[in-house]
Design a protein around this nucleic acid. Structure first.
Lengths: 223, 223
DNA sequence: GCGACTTTGTGCCTGTGTTCACAAAGACCT
DNA sequence: AGGTCTTTGTGAACACAGGCACAAAGTCGC
């Protein structure tokens, strides 16, 4: 009965990072015909703890029913709204090398609220070619076409990343997903998330090197 | 003069996740001929704060010289050793769809301590074909060839990911980088890191939806 | 209509990570 | 050789995230 909408503001960053996982799990449950799910079950499906899940969901208001659980449809709706997925976001992939090529052809974006609408490169040999049903364009052409707010996916070689980011930002881009293995500097108000594949592998290598069976004390039957 | 090797144990996870960034920055500096770097400069290059950088590095012993900074070569060496990069790690990419294909052709792994040595798929139409100079094999063949500890990169469709992970683990894999947008369950002692591209975009979308200029109070000249 | 049962939402506590600020350490100049 | 100056390494304060446990709330059966 309290004003739940009051604390709609400032959802913790860690919670935001998990909302997509919950949504993914909810969509999977929905496609299996499940209509109601408990925090325990949803946490299992999303790979988190139930207490944390409940705390996360409490940040966007009370949509659970005590003694029953959460309505799958309703909760999907709320999370989608919170993430801003009620309209599709337009994505421009910048850099048509191996990775950019694969990302353009990757079908996993469309089902999750994103449509790849522009492929950008600066190599004249690539501009004009067709990839995954789209024509590769240059920045000048992107500038003409892009009216709304778009998200840029940077898949250039590292030495070209900063310049590409600058050009994108000049066009009004405020959200960048950076696959180039380098740091890019952006003005305040522009959000960058980075995905570095080799970095991920190096973190795994660290744990592999240290016998993890020693570090982790939580192995049950062992020893 | 103190026994610095005593606290070599248990490096914080957050620090481990940043060591690859530092190494990347150091390699870049080295290639530009820089021999000594201060925490301030290195932090800038790695995109972190200098105080945090120093604390991170202190966890692997004192390799800095007060008043001067860090020897680039020496520090690269130490971080490499800590991450277990003195020998190359063998990587098997599992799932030869768009993404697996791109990862196989991606040149960025070799320079950072990893060599992609096996490409695995279960589709008979794909097995035997050549991708990026490697022949695609099935799990049975991988079992015959893989002696040492390897890292598996999962790039299968989500519905096939769990089974592929199980098979990899049965072969002795203890480190998995999962690109499939689903949760995979693994026994204790197996480390999984996940990279979900659509999730990253959704997190960006969240911030884009909320005017970030409102949320962030740290904009200087704005307003 | 009432009691028992299930499950949520949340207050508290613990541990982890981050930032600040400064003393110790060493280089460099004179 | 001594003083100054730069930069590290770290103690202490702070913020954040995660886990536990339980009261509140609502359902379901009788």
């Amino acid at each position: 009965m309290s004003t739940a909408s009051a604390d709609r503001r400032d959802i913790p960053e860690a919670t935001v990072a998990r909302l997509p996982l919950y949504l993914r799990a909810l969509v999977a449950l929905d496609s299996r015909g499940v209509e109601v799910v408990s925090s325990e079950e949803l946490a299992e499906a999303a790979g988190v703890r139930s207490a944390g899940l409940r705390k996360d969901l409490s940040h966007l208001g009370s949509y659970g029913v005590r003694g029953v659980g959460y309505d799958v449809d309703r909760l999907s709706e709320e999370i989608s709204r919170e993430l801003g997925l009620h309209h599709d976001w337009s994505v421009a992939i910048i850099g048509m090398g191996n990775l950019g090529h694969a990302l353009a052809a990757y079908g996993g974006f469309a089902t999750r609220g994103f449509s790849v609408r522009w492929l950008v490169d600066e190599d004249p040999a690539v501009i004009g070619t067709q990839i995954a049903g789209l024509q590769v364009i240059d920045f000048a052409e992107l500038e003409k076409q892009a009216p709304e707010s778009i998200i840029a996916v940077l898949a250039t070689p590292p030495h070209a990343a900063q310049q590409a980011a600058d050009q994108a930002i000049a066009l009004g881009v405020r959200s960048i997903l950076n696959f180039a293995p380098c740091v890019i500097t952006v003005p305040a108000g522009v959000e960058v998330r980075k995905v570095d594949l080799a970095t991920e592998l190096q973190i795994l290598a660290f744990h592999e090197q240290r016998g993890r069976d020693i570090t982790l004390g939580t192995i049950e039957g062992a020893r």
